[in-house]
């Protein structure tokens, strides 16, 4: 029974997801087969979504699963399949590149980890302890923030009740949200155009070539 009293599921799940995320990220790095890389990347990003859930960011975690894993990566796999011919399936970097990049990467990693543990506020939990679950649920607040209402910045009275007035200058993330939506639309149309145009021209040149031939 003592082992159960000492078990911390939060630490367990953190460790599990962290190892999955980092392990499969390394697998992406060290595999040369492009399709396997895509598969490992999926698992790594999925494990990161698990980390987001653990950190209380449910909405971000689900967005990660929906857009990143379900959308972007499917797109990537499409690209991989459209360009996957035997000679490009596994393009290996030269060994000299490996050595240089591993040295550089190791240094960078060391620096980042050292700085991650370098700040006292990051290393320790706060004195007041974590918030209760009800306060930690953020999906609604995130949605409100995207539509321009920062519920976490409501003015509060002495008893902690939220007052109605929001600061008038604070429109939350409404403007970035609109901009990013339009941006996404433009980018998707542009990408579709970019991917189509060459095919058309090539088929046109091919047809003229065949006419000339």
């Amino acid at each position: 029974m003592t082992i159960w009293a000492a078990t911390d599921w939060y630490a367990f799940f953190f460790l599990l997801f962290a190892l999955l995320a980092c392990g499969f990220a390394a697998a992406v790095l060290f595999t040369s087969n492009i399709v396997r890389m895509a598969f490992y990347l999926t698992l790594s990003l999925g494990a990161t979504a698990g980390l987001f859930f653990l950190a209380g960011a449910e909405f971000v975690g689900v967005m990660q699963l929906m857009i990143y894993v379900g959308g972007t990566l499917v797109l990537l796999v499409f690209g991989v399949m459209l360009t996957a011919r035997a000679p490009f399936l596994s393009l290996r970097p030269r060994s000299g590149e490996w050595i240089v990049s591993l040295i550089a990467g190791g240094t960078l990693l060391f620096l980042l980890i050292a700085s991650a543990f370098g700040v006292r506020n990051w290393r320790t939990a706060s004195d007041s302890g974590p918030l209760p679950l009800a306060e930690a649920q953020t999906a609604t607040a995130v949605g409100a923030g995207l539509t321009g209402v920062r519920v976490d910045r409501l003015n509060r009275d002495a008893a902690g009740h939220a007052l109605s007035q929001l600061p008038h200058t604070d429109s939350g993330y409404l403007l970035p949200f609109v901009i990013v939506s339009v941006h996404l639309l433009v980018v998707l149309v542009g990408a579709a155009y970019l991917a189509r145009a060459k095919v058309r021209r090539r088929s046109a040149t091919e047809s003229t070539a065949s006419v000339e031939g």
Binding site: D8, W9, Y10, F13, F53, L54, G56, E58, P130, L131, P132, L133, A136
Partner: peptide
């Protein structure tokens, strides 16, 4: 536990 594992 109560706040996080409940979450997971």
């Amino acid at each position: 536990y109560a706040s996080c594992v409940e979450h997971v």
